[in-house]
């Protein structure tokens, strides 16, 4: 077994433990408000997982995850608003729309490098948001769209969102264990070298964009009926910033970082709500500190701590 397989497995199992804790949480967390906070954290966790695939693992600085969540949400919202179609049927449509737009965006940024990918995806995200915000007759613009609920109460949403996070995590784990995981990381580290070893960077980068966009879109489709009202604000760059900070703080390019980061950052933000938007400054500073000094995020720090424990030394450097 390859070394990255062992690393992946540890991260994947760690994430399952965290998600199991989240599943048990409503036993003690009976506040409907805080259950809602966890639901929104999981909504962000999905976006973070999607973003991590294309940016953490593939190295393409995509600044459009929130825009794709918005696309997914509007897929559900528009079908329901105009044709009275159930949100359940809107989910595959919203996901397909996000994936299709992701395909287009992926093809556009394919020949671009570094900062140009960031700038292009950022502009693309803003254009999407402005189009939705200004297509009054279709989307009702900034008024937003009402989306019918699909459940009574909070807990069904809670467990639906959690179940989807688990399923997507399992799917991502399978993807990363396949040759796709190797190829994406090779593309991230050196595109020229990857192509020189037979890897079609066009194909794998495009696929990473499509899958990532679909996951972000899926997040939006599930969020819409939970929130009951969606607006172009879902696609704000601020929300993308939140996704980025979650992954960087949790551990970029790891299976577990996006989930840990989303839960921590979003709930911390809620706790700090009274102090106004200052918590955003704190997150921004944390992102800088982590990006500069702790590239592995919280997960990386935990690993470092574990490696220092007596008896664990050097095990990482030995091949089994």
């Amino acid at each position: 077994m390859g070394n990255s397989e062992r690393r992946l497995r540890a991260e994947f199992h760690g994430s399952l433990v965290i998600l199991a804790l989240v599943a048990a949480l409503p036993l003690v967390l009976t506040s409907v408000y805080w259950q809602g906070v966890v639901i929104v954290s999981l909504y962000y966790a999905l976006q973070a997982m999607g973003w991590n695939l294309v940016t953490g693992y593939t190295g393409q600085m995509n600044l459009a995850p929130a825009a794709f969540a918005m696309v997914g949400a509007y897929g559900v919202g528009l079908l329901s608003h105009h044709w009275g179609i159930s949100p359940w049927l809107g989910v595959p449509v919203g996901v397909a729309a996000a994936a299709g737009i992701g395909l287009v965006l992926g093809r556009i940024v394919l020949p671009l490098q570094g900062a140009y990918v960031a700038l292009t995806t950022l502009s693309f995200a803003e254009i999407l948001r402005l189009v939705i915000g200004n297509s009054y007759s279709v989307t009702r613009g900034d008024l937003g769209l009402n989306v019918p609920t699909v459940f009574d109460g909070r807990l069904p949403y809670y467990y639906l969102m959690l179940a989807v996070v688990v399923l997507v995590q399992i799917a991502l784990y399978a993807l990363m264990r396949s040759r796709m995981g190797l190829f994406l990381q090779a593309v991230r580290d050196d595109e020229v070298a990857a192509a020189s070893r037979g890897v079609s960077i066009v194909w794998w980068k495009t696929l990473a964009f499509v899958v990532s966009s679909a996951i972000c879109g899926l997040a939006g489709t599930l969020y819409a009926p939970f929130a009951g009202l969606i607006s172009p604000e879902l696609g704000l760059i601020l929300n993308t910033g939140l996704v980025v900070s979650m992954v960087v703080i949790g551990g970029m390019g790891t299976m577990i970082g996006p989930i840990v980061g989303a839960l921590l950052v979003y709930t911390a933000g809620e706790m700090l709500r009274e102090v106004g938007d200052y918590h955003l400054i704190v997150f921004a500073l944390l992102v800088i500190v982590f990006a500069r000094f702790f590239r592995g995020g919280i997960w990386g720090l935990l690993q470092l701590g574990a490696d220092r424990l007596p008896g664990r030394r050097e095990t990482g450097a030995r091949e089994g």
Binding site: N3, F183, Q185, D189, A193, A194, R197, G198
Partner: peptide, 20 residues
Amino acid sequence: RVFDRVSTLDNLLVAGRGLG
């Protein structure tokens, strides 16, 4: 040119899988 953030073994696996 190698892939810095994957293991030595995985560098070889990239080439192996990439070449079929």
